[in-house]
Amino acid sequence: MRLQIREVLRSFRRTPLLSALSIAAIGFSLFTIGLFGLVAINFQQALTGLAERVEVVGFVLRGTPTESITLASQDIAAFPEVLDVNFVTEEQALTRAQRELVEFREAYRDLAVNPLPASLEIRLKPNFRDVKHAQQVAERLRGFPFVEDVRYGRDWVERLDRLRNMAGVVGLVIGFAFAVVAIVIIGVTIRITVLQRAKEISIMRLVGATNGFIRGPFLLEGATKGILGGLFSIALCWISFILFRSRLGAGISGLVFFTELQVMAFLFFGVLMGLGGSLVSVGRHLRNV
């Protein structure tokens, strides 16, 4: 093993530029996947929060007496699908909008009249949180005379959902393309090393080294590059994440980075790519030496 590590270091020293190139190639391909991954993860995070918060909202006609609403709330809370009912007054709606929608803060402050209606926010029990049940509840809600309009946020939740999936797919496709490039670069590097060491390899053969033994240092070299590339990509992702959070993220709370497991997965993919590249080229070129 010590011998093999020595061989890897020897090879790094002999072809520093090519080695750096392979590491960078792995790094950037994983970085691409990582960026899209981060977007997808944070979308997901935001969506779960939203989905839990509001399921069905009934907007209340202006000037409806509070007693009617209180009575109706009790009725609605008794629906089998409903977890709880929350009455949001016009003032509360305005305060919330000012707090949460940073970009509209200015606009709302200058308004003379509150344009936001009061509403009943109805959360559904966990196993009723789907379009079908939300629709049923919405239907019944429309039956109340003071309910002006009903929205169940499903449509835009679903749109966001699709967006998130798309971010994931785009990331995978681009990342995959980069990964292929990275594997090719590693393959070429290993091939050059194999040719450089053709004499050494033929002498190893002559004195009875097995193919496995000869391949060892090359595979170790590939795997090492993979790990380094993986670390590089995580560093890049982290830097991007920090930059994004400090520049734009002020109003967006709860941004998340990868979990440890996901970081490990990155390194794992790096190693796979490194091994893949070297296996392909060693397998093909060792025979010709």
């Binding site: 004499k199 050494e200 033929s202 002498i203 053969r205 002559l206 004195v207 009875g208 080294a209 097995t210 193919n211």
Partner: peptide, 22 residues
């Protein structure tokens, strides 16, 4: 078989005109 070739070579010493040293 390919696996037996190294085993054979370990039982042989081979010397060439051009030495083949590293």
């Amino acid at each position: 078989t390919p696996r037996e070739v190294p085993r054979l070579r370990r039982r042989l010493g081979i010397v060439f005109q051009d030495f083949r040293l590293l």
